[in-house]
Structure formats: structure tokens, C-alpha cells
Amino acid sequence: MDISQGPGSVLRHPGYLNFAASRVFSSLSFQSIGIAMGWMIYDQTHSAFALGLVGLCQFLPMAVLTFVVGHVADRFDRRRIGLVCQLIEAVTALVLAIATWQQWLTPAGILAAVTVLGAVVAFERPTMAALLPNIVPASMLQKAVATSTSMMQTALIVGPSLGGLLYGLHPVAPFAIAALLFAVASFNVISIRMQWSPAKREPVTLASVFAGVSFIRSRPVMLGTISLDLFAVLLGGATALLPMFARDILHAGPWGLGL
């Protein structure tokens, strides 16, 4: 094993630590307020349908913006896109914190916030992922991706637990902490040192917009892999109903929901 190419050397690479910190803090915040919003909307409505709407409002912006995101990421500074996205997320979390504190937050307000966050995440996640090859050399890219993926998976597990714990302490806490972490993430993304500039892109055409679809259709293995993942995500959507199970069946409260 080449120690010089291990995870430690990746974290010491200029810009990579800022990149990883930005993604982890953003993911922690998103997962944390996601669990809090799910609990709140069920607490207010006692409706499984309302819980389903949370997932729908999060998914629809991502589906609608799919063909726009790639071209935006290719033609603008990806760090600035990440910065704008995370600042919008920070403001949204802060508004949720204030609305919860003042008891203004309604189910419609929660669904509106989820829609905004879904649209922003649709831009943030692929743009940040596409930023990595411009930060580390090709020889370190595999380690960089593996390290980043491990950190993100950890954030996906810790985030909901943190959200449930904070909500159990006080309903405002998960939103206030998320706003702070989004702000820290935005500071890190603008601090990323780029080693290489993205290649210049051709003008946008109808063919270039749907080039990804043509590429996937021409490769059956990739189409099968993506389809498998699609069905896994669709069936995994049942987790949106967990607040109902935690509250009415397990009587576990927000801490139990987070865990």
C-alpha cells in the first residue's frame, strides 16, 4: 500500500479539506432539519398523506431541474454556485428557526421550505461533486472520492440523529444549528483552492441538453445500474412515514425518531 496516497494525504491536499468540510456540514444540516420538519408536520396534521407530500415537494424540484443543473455547473464558477446554494439554505433554516420560535410555522410553510431546499440541493450536490476533479490531481482522485463518500455517508447517519436530539432539547434548536452549519459550509466552499480550471464548454444546444440521456441509453449496463438505483430509492421512500411510527406506534418521541 502506498501510504503517500492514503486518506491522510488527501486531507492535507490544499483545498480538499475545505471541500470535504463544506459537503459534510451541509449534509449534516440538511438531514438534521429534514427529520425535524417531518416530525413537525406530522405533529401538526397527524396525516400520513402530509408526510408523503414532504417527500414529493423535495423530489419534484430535483426532477424538474435535472437538465438545467449540469449546464449551470459547467458554465459558472462551481464554488460560487455552492456558496449561493448554502447561503440560501442557511437563510431558509434561519427563517424556519424564527417561525418555529414565534409559532408561525404551518404545514404549508413547512412544504414551501422543503420545496426551496429541494431546488437548492438539486444544484448543490452535483455541482459540488463535479468540483472535486479540479481540486486534486488524477492520481489522488480515487482516494479523494472514497474519502469524501465515507464522510458523506457518516453525515447521512449522524444528521438525522442530531436532528432528533436537538428537537428533543428544543424545537428551535435543529433549525438554528443547521443555519449555523450551513454558514460554516458556505465559508469553506468559497475557501476551496482550485488547482485546475474547468475546460471551456460549447454553447448550449438541444442536443447538448439531452446528451446525458443519449449516453445512458447507448450503454445498457449503465442504464440497468441507474434503473436499479431508481427502484431502490422509490421503495426506500417508505422511510418518510417514520415520524408516524415513532409517534403513534413506538411512542418514542423525536429522540427515538432521530435514532
Results as ranks from 00 to 15, higher is better:
Val72Lys: 10
Val72Arg: 00
Val72Met: 08
Phe76His: 15
Phe76Lys: 13
Arg78Trp: 07
Arg78His: 12
Arg79Tyr: 06
Arg80Lys: 13
Arg80Gly: 12
Ile81Val: 10
Leu83Tyr: 14
Gln86Ser: 13
Gln86Lys: 05
Glu89Phe: 15
Ala90Gly: 13
Val91Ala: 14
Val95Tyr: 11
Leu96Met: 01
Leu96Cys: 00
Gln102Asn: 12
Gln102His: 04
Gln103His: 13
Leu105Thr: 02
Thr106Lys: 03
Pro107Met: 05
Leu111Arg: 10
Ala113Leu: 00
Val114Pro: 09
Val114Gly: 04
Val114Glu: 05
Val114Phe: 03
Val116Thr: 14
Gly118Val: 00
Val120Tyr: 06
Val121Cys: 09
Val121Asn: 13
Glu124Thr: 09
Arg125Pro: 03
Pro126Val: 15
Pro126Asp: 05
Thr127Ser: 02
Thr127Pro: 04
Ala129Phe: 00
Leu131Asp: 06
Leu132Thr: 11
Pro133Trp: 10
Ile135Tyr: 11
Ser139Gln: 11
Lys143Gln: 15
Ala146Ser: 08
Ala146Lys: 08
Ala146Gly: 04
Thr147Trp: 02
Met151Lys: 04
Ile157Asp: 11
Gly159Asn: 07
Ser161Thr: 14
Ser161His: 12
Gly164Asn: 12
Leu165Ile: 12
Tyr167Pro: 08
His170Gly: 06
Pro171Thr: 09
Val172His: 02
Pro174Ile: 08
Phe175Ile: 10
Phe175Asn: 10
Ala178Gly: 03
Phe182Ser: 00
Phe182Ile: 04
Phe182Leu: 01
Ala183Phe: 14
Ser186Val: 08
Phe187Gln: 15
Phe187Glu: 11
